[in-house]
Design a binder for these strands. Sequence first.
DNA 1: GGAAAGATTGCAAATTCGGCAAGATCCAGT
DNA 2: ACTGGATCTTGCCGAATTTGCAATCTTTCC
Lengths: 216, 216
Amino acid sequence: MTDEVVLRERDRLGLRERKKLATRQALCDAAMQLAINHGIEGITPERIADAADVSSRTFRNYFSSPEEAIISGMQESARALPANLRARPRTEPIWDSLCIALVTTVEETMSARDLMSLLALVRCHRSLLAEHLTALEEASQQLAEIIAERTGTDVNRDIYPRMLADVARIAVKSSLDLWSQGNTGRDIGEILTEALDLLGRGLSVPATAPPITGST
Amino acid sequence: MTDEVVLRERDRLGLRERKKLATRQALCDAAMQLAINHGIEGITPERIADAADVSSRTFRNYFSSPEEAIISGMQESARALPANLRARPRTEPIWDSLCIALVTTVEETMSARDLMSLLALVRCHRSLLAEHLTALEEASQQLAEIIAERTGTDVNRDIYPRMLADVARIAVKSSLDLWSQGNTGRDIGEILTEALDLLGRGLSVPATAPPITGST
DNA sequence: GGAAAGATTGCAAATTCGGCAAGATCCAGT
DNA sequence: ACTGGATCTTGCCGAATTTGCAATCTTTCC
């Protein structure tokens, strides 16, 4: 039996694969750390590779730019979303499933305070912003497929799954933007919940009154 | 009187400014035309500059990449949105104003059929997609400020204006994506209107029935 | 008219990118 | 365990791209 377990482990991930993942992770971490500590300017493939104990040539085998490495490192944490969404019961309304999965994922991944300062950087630098937005776009694509599968719709023909995924994305994005400014002093989960509630109820509602904060 | 007019013209835009705008426009047009005719691959600052009758060094003074020039050319047309939104009466509900301004702007700018093929290109190329998304992001920022001003909310503290602006963005984006696929044979204004309607009413509505495609 | 400010251009230095091959490490079959 | 093949890392080098700078020309302002 032990053999079988070992075998399964090996099938799942060989040593080679694990090492590859490890260096990728090391590069991401190094990139993020450098960005946080010294800002974006002056970050070069060399420094990142240096900090990750690989050659600069290796860095280029994994990423085509420092920005890509940084953002990839941030996204890394958010990979849990698909799993969290699939974990919801299929009988639950898709919107509710989506909201719960989103809030759960975001709250978990944002516990690391570093990500807040990183997000603040992203808002200031066009090159980072571009990477971040495309990453979100790709995530949104995946999400749309899951939603389509759950709701029995077709990504390529119906607009509903795309729309739902895109709305989820901007709920996350708006919340993160606001949160990373640090002015509100509110929890990220709280902000995101408000955003999702706003979207769920429809936006043609009265505008001026803060729609959520004053619940009860 | 003629003198006064000339004088006012001059105050508004000096000859120098006008020339600068002109070369920028020429570069954008050249970039878009080249992209449409020969695809993205093989487009180089040299060719664009050549087509616009300036040196390649000058191109770099304006844009840092061919992609930036292309997308900037597309965005050029959409600059009317802020004006269109401000033109709406302040007594009108903000959501209605937004929808009208969006549909008007998009219908006007998309009358040029070239933009459809360009949008199709954008969906296929990561570098173009990145530029496109950041351009949309910047537009969204401006929009958020206008909305905040209109609704008496604060961009830096309330989530509502950002949300509204971002939702407008994805409505536009989704509609353009669907439209540029060319499968629907429908008008872009029509598609956008239905997307906005869906968003306005709230997304926690039944999922499985295609809410857009089968409208009466 | 003339000086200051700004735009365009060409050139050259510097940087980045990507292919290639050598060496190291891992995997699978015996 | 051994071995042949596959994959990853790395240094090196040439090509392409980007940037800095100074010269030249145009516009603006006094």
